[in-house]
């Protein structure tokens, strides 16, 4: 029987400095890891640790996958010291991913906060491959400062195909765009809420207030999709760390619609 806890090797082919604290690692796993957008993998380095990350690349590209990682914890701090050609451990993919088939024929509002745009980039790229299937795609993205904005050049390209609004919590001298939390750009949206879904990813506090705002705007709880962050250790629904109500986030999520989890206590903590 195969050992489900054993990672396979993946070599770092390229490292892209996205912001002062965020880097994208382009990985080439030894064996193909085919993932659905929104699924996650467990990345490890011997002697340092293992943690879950959601790929930020197009799921239709099979040989490589990108992980956009913020320097925030023990493992990620270490990852940020690594250079090209280093070998990491990877296993997965795990979880359900975004139900993009259900988005067909609908307008899609994508709301990202900070490094939460990483999984959403994968989603956007997946949607782009069947762009004609969706009525409209609209991205609202917020980061702390202009320096913290991810994928700036790519967003310029996306703007040719989809609506984009960007905001920062704090501007600088050169910033001419909106200043305020992401909820401040969630108004007068060019969307028909009765045929729209919203996909939200970001820090818990951002997801909380975004969800509340979306409900005010008329989104139904079943049409708001959230990527929940927990400390998944095994990824297989066995280790017990990521329980949320009757769910394991690794097994039943990480993507939930708000309808499924709205009655669970403390989901935003």
């Amino acid at each position: 029987m195969k050992n489900p806890y054993q990672p396979i090797e993946a070599v770092i082919e390229e490292i892209i400095q996205e912001t002062p604290t965020i880097r994208t690692f382009v990985l080439k796993p030894k064996e193909l890891i085919e993932f659905k957008t929104g699924q996650f993998v467990e990345l490890s380095f011997p002697g340092v640790g293992e943690a879950p990350f959601t790929p930020s690349s197009n799921p239709n590209i099979k040989e490589r996958l990108d992980l956009t990682i913020m320097n925030v914890g023990r493992l990620t701090q270490f990852l940020h010291t690594l250079s090209k050609d280093t070998i990491l451990g990877i296993r997965g993919p795990y979880g359900n991913g975004y139900p993009i088939e259900e988005f067909e024929g609908k307008e899609i509002l994508i709301v990202g906060g900070g490094v939460g745009l990483a999984p959403l980039r994968s989603l956007i790229l997946a949607l782009f491959s069947k762009l004609e299937k969706y009525k409209k795609i609209f991205l609202c993205y917020g980061a702390r400062t202009p320096k913290d904005l991810l994928y700036k050049d790519q967003i310029l390209q996306w703007q040719k195909k989809i609506g984009v609004r960007i905001t920062v919590d704090t501007g600088d001298e050169s910033w001419k765009g909106n200043v305020g939390l992401v909820t401040s750009i969630l108004k007068d949206l060019p969307l028909k809420m009765d045929n729209a879904v919203a996909v939200v990813c970001g820090p818990p506090i951002m997801m909380k207030f975004t969800t509340l705002r979306l409900l005010e705007l008329g989104f139904k709880p079943k049409d708001i999709y959230l990527s929940m962050e927990k400390n998944m250790s095994c990824g297989l629904g066995k280790c017990g760390h990521c329980r949320m109500g009757k769910y394991y986030v690794c097994r039943d999520g990480p993507v939930f619609c708000f309808e499924e989890i709205k009655d669970i206590h403390d989901i935003w903590e």
Partner: peptide
């Protein structure tokens, strides 16, 4: 060599649910 191990864990431990960046739903 480093090898994978599995350890019994306890949900009464402070770091049981802690994630990187410090958030802890079971603080």
């Amino acid at each position: 060599a480093h090898e994978r191990v599995r350890l019994w864990d306890a949900c009464l431990y402070a770091n049981f649910a802690k994630v990187a960046g410090g958030a802890n739903p079971l603080r």
